[in-house]
């Protein structure tokens, strides 16, 4: 659906070249929710603006449904943009228009008839849960409600793609969740492909299927959210994950446990989905003369999948420990022996 290849965006700031996006390759499938995460200044905002050509790429290719966006004429580009909805951090609603008129705006641009506008806008306001707010002005609404209006507006022309530019960054956590649920609902109901950028791992974790991590204009890591979460490769990714999902055991604690129980191994066990509901460790102790001591645990929901991680110390003789680890692997768990931190 969206295919970004060798994309570069360079700004000229008073003779000084700033490379905002460097050699980015991203493929987004139809119906997918794809997240781009990065700290501010990582280039994610430039990247998402290159998709609908609000920013013109310096070089590289952006294809939507096989159509090369960078080669379109102005009228063709406007036509294409009508099928790409976009929402923003600061909502960007017309302050001087009612909620109804804001949602109607994209329909009016293309000369939709009055009756059709009325019908479509009522439908959209119902969809975002603001059926009774048509006559209100944006200043009378809360941040979450404003973003709902913006979402209704973005969906007016039945787009195939929705671009979300830090759509929840100005909202409190509770409102963020309700907006994310709305986006997920829209994605499922209309099979709309969503590309979002954010600096909050929580957003990625809650609704994204796949994620790209950006740093200094480059995508340093991308893949399914589950893979990235369970096996982060770069320090940047680890930093993001740490905020929502800390699976580190402080070093001094590790050292202390090793001193108290020499001869054992400290291991990390990660489990995904169904494996979580099996009583694996009870099974482990009945089969092998091993004593697991749970040091640390965490369980989290990634989109609709459960993902858990445990750090435990296994004591017993080393041959049995190896057998135990093998057993855990056979149960579909990911097992990692933590090296001594000396």
């Amino acid at each position: 659906m969206i295919s970004i290849k060798s994309l570069y965006k360079t700004y000229d700031q008073g003779g000084r070249k700033v490379e905002a996006v460097k050699d980015v390759h991203i493929e987004i499938a139809k119906g997918e929710i794809f997240g781009v995460i990065g700290f501010s200044g990582a280039g994610k905002s430039s990247l998402i603006r290159c998709v609908n050509l609000l920013e013109i790429p310096t070089s590289g290719s952006v294809k939507i449904n096989g159509i090369e966006m960078t080669e379109l004429t102005d009228p063709e580009l406007r036509q294409a943009r009508r099928k790409i909805g976009m929402i923003f951090q600061h909502f960007n609603l017309l302050t001087s228009s009612t909620v109804f008129d804001n949602v109607a705006a994209p329909l009016r641009l293309v000369g939709t008839s009055k009756e059709q506008i009325k019908k479509r806008v009522d439908e959209l306001l119902g969809l975002v849960g603001l059926a009774d707010k048509g006559g209100f002005y944006p200043s009378q609404l809360s941040g979450g409600q404003k973003q709902r209006v913006a979402i209704a507006r973005a969906l007016a022309n039945e787009p195939e793609i929705l671009l979300c530019d830090e759509a929840t960054s100005a909202l409190d956590p509770q409102t963020t969740d309700s907006i994310l649920e709305l986006l997920l609902d829209i994605n499922k109901r209309f099979q709309i492909t969503i590309m979002l950028i954010t600096h909050e791992m929580h957003v990625i974790k809650k609704i994204c299927d796949r994620v790209a991590v950006m740093e200094n204009g480059r995508v340093v890591e991308q893949g399914s959210v589950l893979d990235i979460f369970s096996n982060p490769q770069t320090q940047t990714t680890k930093n993001f994950i740490k905020n929502v999902f800390d699976i580190q055991l402080p070093e001094n604690l590790q050292r202390k446990f090793r001193q108290q129980q020499p001869g054992g191994e400290i291991i990390r066990v990660s489990f995904v989905g169904e494996a979580t509901s099996e009583p694996v460790f009870a099974e482990l102790t009945t089969r092998f003369p091993l004593r697991p001591n749970i040091l640390f645990g965490n369980i989290t929901q990634i989109k609709e999948t459960t993902f858990g991680s445990l750090i435990l110390q296994l004591t017993g003789d080393s041959a049995t420990i190896q057998q135990g680890l093998q057993f855990l692997k056979e149960q579909g768990l990911r097992v990692e022996v933590l090296e001594d931190v000396e």
């Binding site: 609000l54 960007n92 609603l93 302050t95 641009l109």
Partner: peptide
Amino acid sequence: DAGIIEAFQAMGATRRQIVFQV
């Protein structure tokens, strides 16, 4: 707000529509 203008560019408004309607 420049953001409002950007939003209308993103929804495929012509420059004339941006001047008069935004």
